[in-house]
Simulated scan of single mutants.
Amino acid sequence: MQHLEDVLRRGLNDPDAGWNMGSFGAIAEFHHVAGDAAPPRATALEQGTTRGAIRIDRLEGVRPVAYETLSPKTHRWTQGLSLCLPEAEAAMHRRDALTELGPDEGAIRPEDREAVLFDMGLAQPQVDFCIRTADPALLATLRAQAGRSLFEADNPAMPAILKAHPHRVALTRLGRVEVYQMIGGPETGGTSPEGPHTHVLPKLLRAGRTHSANTPIPEGWVPCAGFHPKSPVMGRLGEDKSFDEVAFEAFQSLLAAWGPEAYTAQKEQVWQALGTGTGPEAWREPDARVARAGLRNAIRQWRRRHGDSDLVAAWARAFDRGEGEADPENPGH
């Protein structure tokens, strides 16, 4: 049986792993950048670089949910481990206006603890999405606009934030992710910088959801942190790479311990059918969404592990034509 704390600690020391905290539409991510100096080895559930940091403060009551989701690219899939709490325990403050919270005494780095934290007022269920600054000019603007929505057309606070690039801090009941890098925009070529970064997507925020429908979180539970172990099919920047059997098997052990039974059972049954040379004509596509994803990813994974064949091509034509099912927060994956 996998021990969750050990799994997470190993992940914090793997430069190919990624992390996040947030909601559907407001998320802070922590990643290593190839070529950067290696951070110190994590002994607690905390890791940081000059670009950002993550700290997990609590595992009591956490339900880990391992999952694989479909990619719009039929030679890929994505994988992750969500750390979930019951809905009531996961709930944060849901402030709907810019709110000053005072000095960030819980900051991961001591030098950041006198800077002032402001809740951006995104009113998200499981995250207080904040900015942190000690810049006098930005502080004056934020304090003058406290109590207003950042999305009001005439509010000068949002332009000031985008110009000043303050730290972003995502707070959940499990801990925090801090991002020190610039906000993606004109000064970064219109894209998020490599490594730790944030996304605030108003269109997704309006949905009021805690997570993507593609992530099989059990009813009544809410993901408060995400761990993305090294992918067997993608590099750190989402580029294709040669299949990594070691990374694949490592995640399959997490999936066996904490994955949805309907998904894992469908994969095993499809692999058994492929292994015995059974064609797709005798197979019934399952009704449940999570099992259908298991069917399609089983075909993709068999192909990456064993190579192409007339048999696997027939299964793909029957059940994995590649349309739809993309995650709106990771459209290119």
Results as ranks from 00 to 15, higher is better:
residue 175 G to D: 01
residue 216 P to C: 11
residue 99 T to I: 03
residue 307 G to P: 04
residue 291 A to C: 04
residue 151 F to R: 00
residue 333 H to M: 15
residue 153 A to D: 07
residue 29 E to I: 08
residue 20 N to S: 14
residue 102 G to W: 00
residue 141 T to W: 00
residue 157 A to H: 03
residue 217 I to A: 03
residue 289 R to D: 06
residue 171 L to C: 06
residue 90 A to M: 04
residue 31 H to T: 02
residue 33 V to E: 01
residue 114 E to S: 15
residue 233 V to E: 04
residue 149 S to M: 01
residue 180 Y to I: 09
residue 221 W to G: 07
residue 192 S to R: 13
residue 158 M to V: 02
residue 315 W to R: 08
residue 83 L to T: 10
residue 317 R to A: 02
residue 153 A to T: 08
residue 283 W to A: 09
residue 58 R to H: 08
residue 155 N to L: 08
residue 190 G to M: 06
residue 40 P to G: 04
residue 116 V to C: 07
residue 315 W to S: 05
residue 125 P to N: 02
residue 110 P to G: 14
residue 279 G to A: 08
residue 156 P to H: 03
residue 142 L to M: 07
residue 117 L to H: 07
residue 166 P to G: 09
residue 118 F to C: 11
residue 142 L to E: 01
residue 98 L to D: 01
residue 270 V to Q: 09
residue 223 P to C: 03
residue 119 D to P: 12
residue 23 S to G: 09
residue 310 D to F: 14
residue 55 R to F: 01
residue 72 P to L: 12
residue 294 G to R: 04
residue 290 V to D: 00
residue 226 G to A: 08
residue 18 G to D: 01
residue 239 E to L: 10
residue 272 Q to C: 15
residue 262 A to T: 03
residue 329 E to D: 12
residue 36 D to K: 13
residue 116 V to G: 05
residue 89 E to Q: 14
residue 254 L to Q: 13
residue 304 R to F: 00
residue 171 L to P: 06
residue 80 G to K: 03
residue 323 E to F: 02
residue 253 S to Q: 14
residue 17 A to K: 00
residue 304 R to C: 06
residue 180 Y to S: 05
residue 103 P to V: 11
residue 261 E to K: 10
residue 223 P to S: 07
